[in-house]
Design a protein around this nucleic acid. Structure first.
Lengths: 345, 345
DNA sequence: GTTAGCACTCTAATTAAAAGAGTGCTAACA
DNA sequence: TGTTAGCACTCTTTTAATTAGAGTGCTAAC
């Protein structure tokens, strides 16, 4: 069942009005607001049809209509206008903070929350496959050995190991050589028993230390929980009364505190990228698959720092969020992030 | 004006009842509840006096009384009973997560929030004076040099430096030697122009790289914003209706998101420690100096990992929080943390 | 196909009344 | 002199009832 041209226009009028006011919108409002020049009675008839088709509902008899998820989906997919966001000084603001990835992501989150007035979530980068690029052991003092592992993409992991036996500096050098020769270029699946045996056979002393080091490396390669998530503007969602039911709000805030959304982000493979600019996706209400988010929408974008190194940025707001603005903001932000990552290499 | 014995008993009865119920408590309740065997009329007279002295107030005429900050203070300072907290398996729970400081603090925060049903905040360690213990430059690939700085207390900082000119491995070794010789044992105030000049004079090439490295080291020594704060159970405060005034709750949650409390933590020098177990301090209402916290109380404890390396743990709840339980929980937690830090050394 | 008009429905706001809790005060009592 | 019973009074909370408002659906006319 196709929607007529007029029905589309009415839908657009309903949604736009509702996005602004948050109140159910009635036939009379539309008949005045839009340039259709139709009486409220005509609008009423059309609205009745639109309701039957599932695009709008009444909260109760004798109230105006509000869009359903399906209605929002229609809007987002087919009638959203491309808004060009003034790019202004986001980039310069971010560059200041870009010396460390961590602070960069934190300020991205904060910036987005401020610009949009919704809540934001930024995930740190994940790595599709992690390979060892460089290993270094250093004797920090007689009791401590520092293990440094650099992975593909120049991710640095370090961990202090407590040692009970002193190690001579020649042995440290030897360990470094053996470890680098044996492990460089390998990913986790390639570090098997044979490789480990080979390392151990070349280092006849300090078996315990080798074990510790290998453990650190294994952690560096497998660990997924260093996958940080930065949030900001959580309280912005309290500004929207439709989200402020005592019961729901706790769940919603918990979803943020627990970073539950990332579960989903891991699942959603970044498959259909490349075709679109930055794979901006909109999840409306239950499309998020999270019960606590049933009255919210989530807009996500994927950034990529290098090959197979990517992360997600998300904005959470009420279903009646200003999708145009959010999408435009994300789009221009992504461009700037691209630049920043390029400069940082 | 000293309080009589009877007045103290009445205060205690009022506060204990109020802690449980959160409702203003009336004279009749006290006359039944407490073992004073006094009629409600007598209690009323005493209450009237206590109100005049500023220990309790009525929210309105014809309501019961609730404690003022002064009243709570009296309770916390002089009438709280030492509750011994069953220590059970907190430690074993924590040890699992203790391989990395970061995850340890995260789980401490979570554990506290769960155990107490209030919100918790844990600050990562700070260092009274930071000294360079060990420096290492490593050539990771032809474009990148990894700078590693280990500070006193085995805090590791690392940063990747992008280089434009290739550096020979002899030069890297030389740089390492010069830097370590010149800087080890120094704190930020001691790295002055003379030291820098001395380094530069010993390394005639790669002036740009030396600059970058010195910048990294300077950052490592001065940076204070890597002072992480972990929070948990923020939504627990929504369980207490007296904190749920729409206006105030946003400020309060923002205080958490922004980690505003740390400002205060920095100021409050850890001076009067050592005398008390773990310097557990209770801030009631406005004693926190934060307007958003005026209806809350904050209980903090100081942990110390080593000499001059310390951090804070805090619990935030309504003013009528179960101080005995919170203090006891913190106390036993601190003991366990001591053990954990000792083991980790 | 469009529109005016009207009865009907449901919510939200307003008002009124009643119930409840607790105090302060007075007067009596030990 | 300290304690207590009793009662009038105050203020909040709860409940109920009424009203006003918004918006629809339907019918009949254009």
């Amino acid at each position: 069942m196709e929607l007529s041209d007029r029905q589309l226009k009415i839908m657009q009028a309903i949604i736009k009005t509702y996005l602004e006011t948050g109140e159910p919108v009635g036939s009379r409002t539309i008949s005045k607001y839009s340039d259709l020049n139709l009486s409220s009675a005509t609008i009423r008839n059309e609205m009745s049809d639109l309701e039957e088709m599932g695009y709008i509902v009444q909260p109760h008899t004798s109230a105006g209509r509000i869009p359903t998820d399906k209605g929002y989906r229609l809007y987002v997919d087919t009638m959203m206008e491309d808004k060009v966001q003034e790019v202004e000084n986001m980039k310069s603001e971010l560059m200041e903070k870009a010396d460390k990835m961590e602070t960069l992501f934190k300020s991205v989150a904060k910036l987005l929350a401020n610009k949009t007035n919704y809540a934001s979530m930024v995930s740190g980068p994940r790595y599709k496959s992690k390979k060892v690029k460089f290993i270094q052991l250093s004797e920090v003092d007689s009791n401590h050995l520092l293990t440094i592992v650099v992975l593909d993409g120049n991710v640095v992991k370090n961990q202090m190991i407590k040692i009970h036996e002193p190690v001579s500096s020649e042995n440290v050098a030897k360990l470094n050589f053996v470890l680098n020769t044996a492990l460089n270029g390998l990913d986790v699946s390639e570090v098997n028993i044979a490789v480990i045996q080979s390392i151990k056979s070349q280092v006849n002393e300090h078996g315990g230390i080798v074990d510790s080091v290998l453990e650190v490396i294994a952690n560096a390669l497998t660990e997924d929980d260093d996958f940080e998530v930065y949030t900001s503007g959580t309280t912005n969602i309290l500004k929207y009364p439709e989200l402020t039911d005592k019961d729901n709000i706790v769940d919603l805030l918990d979803t943020f505190e627990e970073r539950t959304l990332i579960t989903q982000w891991k699942e959603s493979d970044v498959q259909n990228d490349g075709d679109e600019n930055h794979a901006i996706q909109v999840y409306i209400g239950n499309e998020t698959k999270l019960d606590s988010m049933k009255d919210c929408s989530l807009v996500t974008a994927t950034y990529r720092i290098g090959d197979g190194v990517y992360g997600k940025i998300g904005i959470v707001g009420p279903k009646r969020m200003d999708y145009e603005k959010v999408v435009a903001t994300l789009q221009s932000l992504m461009k700037e992030l691209d630049d920043i990552f390029k400069e940082k290499n």
